[in-house]
Amino acid sequence: MTSSDKLTAGEIVRKVLLYVALIIMAFIMLVPFAWMISASLKFEKDVFSFPIVWIPENPQWSNYSEIWQKVPLLTGFFNSVKLTVCVTILQLATSSLAAYAFAKLEFKGRDTIFMLYIMTIAIPWQVYMVPQYKMMTLFGLTDSHLGIVLMHAFTATGVFLMRQFFMGIPTELLEAARIDGLSEYGIWAKLMLPLSKPVIATLCLTSFTFEWNDFMGPLIYLSTTEKKTLQVMLRMFNTQYSSNYALIMAAATVALIPVLILFVFLQRYFVEGVATSGLKG
């Protein structure tokens, strides 16, 4: 009796400690966002007042209308949407096609080409960004959305991720479909893709977050203001109005909202994507 009583007491202490630790960590993660939103609703003179006033007495919603006039953030927003959608769709289509061949078809040169893909996965963009830029200049594809889409749409990681998933789909299913007279394209469209929803979700989200948040790529490539993406516009805003923190925080909040919305609704897929792609290595 006493020992089991002790155990529950110990368990309670542990439970409390566990929640305290988690709440502290959650607090550390959330405070910057809370401060950002709070500052975005203040008069400039009150942004850094100390002690911190978390809920401004007289919220300045006008900060949120002002930012759009300072820098063409809306244009940046649409440019980002355009690039993200194009890259994600192209990436999904071409990687799933290639992954099907690598996973389920036999042909000469398959393993050699696949090795080539694998080897380049390890090489980061920073290594080849310079010659890539010179090459794109030669093609006349700098300062163009098409150039960025072409650079980001055909990735080895996408092919690899899809192939790993396709490998797990039993070949007997494909054989049955072939006997039923489906062509390879038919199998890809009517069998493989519907069975691959989890990996499609993962690839879409990875591609979306990468493209939406990408900063150095558009920074290097896009020079015309009308073509710049939201992240680059936000950066422009931060440097041009560097003393106006209330507006900067309003712009930062606006830039975070699309990802936040997507994250709230699809967080399960985000998490599953990380867990599966992370574990496979």
């Binding site: 289509a93 071409t94 990687s95 096609l97 290639a98 099907y100 061949a101 690598f102 078809l105 036999e106 042909f107 000469k108 398959r110 080409i113 080539l116 893909y117 380049t120 090489i123 290594v127 080849y128 310079v130 010659p131 890539q132 010179k134 090459m135 072409l150 650079m151 749409a153 055909f154 990735t155 080895a156 996408g158 092919v159 390879e184 890809w188």
Partner: peptide, 30 residues
């Protein structure tokens, strides 16, 4: 069969080859 297989990988391979693989090799030379 080989032709069909290549038609699957070509859209990605061509893009990947031009925009990633060539720059990697080029960087070594450069």
């Amino acid at each position: 069969k080989t032709l069909v297989a290549y038609s699957f990988i070509m859209p990605n391979l061509i893009g990947f080859f031009i925009f990633t693989f060539v720059p990697i090799v080029f960087s070594l030379f450069l």
